[in-house]
Amino acid sequence: MNDPHLLSLTVNGTEEEVLVEPRRTLADVLRHDLRLTGTHVGCEHGVCGACTVLVDDAPVRACLMFAVQAEGADVRTVESLDDGVRLSDLQQSFSEHHALQCGFCTPGFLMLAEGVLAESPDAEREEIREALSANLCRCTGYQTIVDAVHATATSRRETTA
């Protein structure tokens, strides 16, 4: 029943092979098998968004995917955002705007925002606000998260213009 499957996927640019029980969620495999603990788990039923990662560039809930469904997929987690020395522009913006307090929801918001900004680089504040309603934050009251993402969107537009 629990026969493990050999799963191959790419995580943050590295090809990984993992032996997983079919019922293991992608979130658990990322965190506990691959030890990428930046992706957090807040509800395990797809509402809080703390486990949001990019799968083939789209933001998805890692708790709502069995890892075996990610066969061959390209997964990006929060660990991919900085270069080891400097924060990314989005991470920097979160810090500048005090868009995190306890930091538990933060990786999910960062990956959600990266997904949203990649698809809608022209997004204005209200569109960003609606997109960010996918995830829960209990600390900030959200305002500064919207500010941080909006500021990043604006500065990226200025950079590419």
């Binding site: 965190r31 506990h32 030890r35 990428l36 603990t37 930046g38 992706t39 957090h40 788990v41 987690t77 929060v78 660990e79 955002l81 900085d82 924060l87 991470q91 979160f94 810090s95 500048e96 005090h98 995190l100 306890c102 930091g103 538990f104 933060t106 990786p107 960062l110």
Partner: peptide
């Protein structure tokens, strides 16, 4: 309002929450 000392690790996924301990 100086940059928070907590931020770099929390923003990069390098914090250590209890479920991160193995």
């Amino acid at each position: 309002s100086i940059p928070r000392h907590e931020d770099p690790r929390l923003l990069t996924g390098r914090g250590r929450f209890v479920d991160d301990i193995a």
